[in-house]
Simulated scan of single mutants.
Amino acid sequence: MAGRLLSIGECMVELMQADGGLMRKSFAGDTFNTAYYARLFLPADWSVDYFTAVGTDMISEEMLAFIKQHGIGTDKIARIDDRSPGLYMIHLNDGERSFSYWRSASAAKLLARDPDRLRHAVEASDIIVFSGITLAILPPEDVDTLLSELRRAKAAGKLVAFDPNIRPRLWDSAERMRETISDGARAATLVMPSFDDEATHFGDTSISETIARYRALGVADLVVKDGADGATLAFGETNTHVPSAKVEMIVDTTSAGDSFNGGFLAGYVVTGDAPSSARFAAELAAAVIQHHGALVAKDKLPPAIG
């Protein structure tokens, strides 16, 4: 059955290391990466749209062309004068990454400024994806606008998927970060946290504690990612552990969680089965981290699920 996935957030200019001390330019960002991998593996009768804002400059034009080239709709992307996309640079050390960011004039910070445009996009979609980074870059009043629309979508029975993706330096205080992340979870039907983030910033001592905390916020389903230790799924009354997939050599972990999210959502659309979707997502993430950059070509990835 045909459907539409809407991913909400910030796509940025990505600079990564290349040979000879050069840098290679691409475009990426957590919810965009999720949209990219979902598009690769969703059925052809599903549409994938990205909801953000960009400028009217040359790099914004290049970004829009890049998004379209990868089969992701751009009709819901706003254009804002005197703004431009943010930029980040990947630094690698034995496959683990750190980042430098330049995003003070990012147009994406204004993505929720037009409530009517946001409502129309959400109402037209079956699955909506957002993240803690989406919430972190927005002014507080726009966070309220976005979460209001997502709560409406949840009440209407849509699948609202949230990755807390906790990045402390994007927030002005740890208290507001934890409060807003919790509000984001309340607006979601599926939360896909990383356990190390939850342990660090919420003090969880076990995955069971993470699951219980989000369940208390009204979250129906959870996929708790735990790196090399796999993932724990809490759907209904059943908790299921899915092991990680074998990795020969870690090259770049930049999009490990994002690719898992996209693969899981695509698999869940196809099969309706959470454990098999998580197994596929684990294989996908394992393949992705064996290559450079956030977005890896489909011919280097496992075959589609189902």
Rank of each mutant, 00 (worst) to 15 (best):
I90Q: 03
I128R: 04
R176K: 09
H70E: 07
L159P: 10
T134K: 03
M89S: 11
D144G: 00
L110S: 15
E141R: 14
A156F: 09
R113G: 00
A121P: 04
S104V: 08
T74M: 10
D82K: 13
R169W: 00
K68T: 15
I80M: 09
A107C: 06
P168S: 07
I166N: 07
W102V: 12
N93D: 15
S104A: 13
L92Y: 12
G157W: 09
P193G: 03
L170W: 02
D172W: 00
M192R: 04
L110Q: 15
D82W: 02
A108T: 14
R79P: 10
A156T: 06
A155W: 10
F66M: 07
A65Y: 00
R152L: 13
G71Y: 05
A108H: 12
R79E: 06
E179T: 11
A78M: 15
V129D: 09
I127K: 11
M192I: 14
I67W: 09
I137C: 05
I127G: 11
A188N: 05
D183M: 12
S125P: 02
A121S: 12
L190N: 08
T145Y: 01
A187E: 09
S98L: 03
Y101C: 05
A185P: 04
A112R: 06
Y101D: 01
E149P: 10
T180S: 07
R119T: 14
M63W: 02
L111K: 03
S100P: 08
V191F: 05
K154F: 06
K154R: 15
R167W: 01
E96T: 04
S106G: 10
I127D: 11
R79I: 08
N165E: 03
I137S: 05
R151E: 13
E96W: 05
T134C: 08
D163W: 08
D142P: 07
I72F: 06
D163Y: 02
K154S: 12
D163F: 06
H70W: 13
D126W: 03
G95R: 02
L146S: 07
L150N: 03
S182H: 11
F162M: 02
F162L: 01
S84C: 13
Y101L: 10
G95I: 08
M63S: 07
S148E: 13
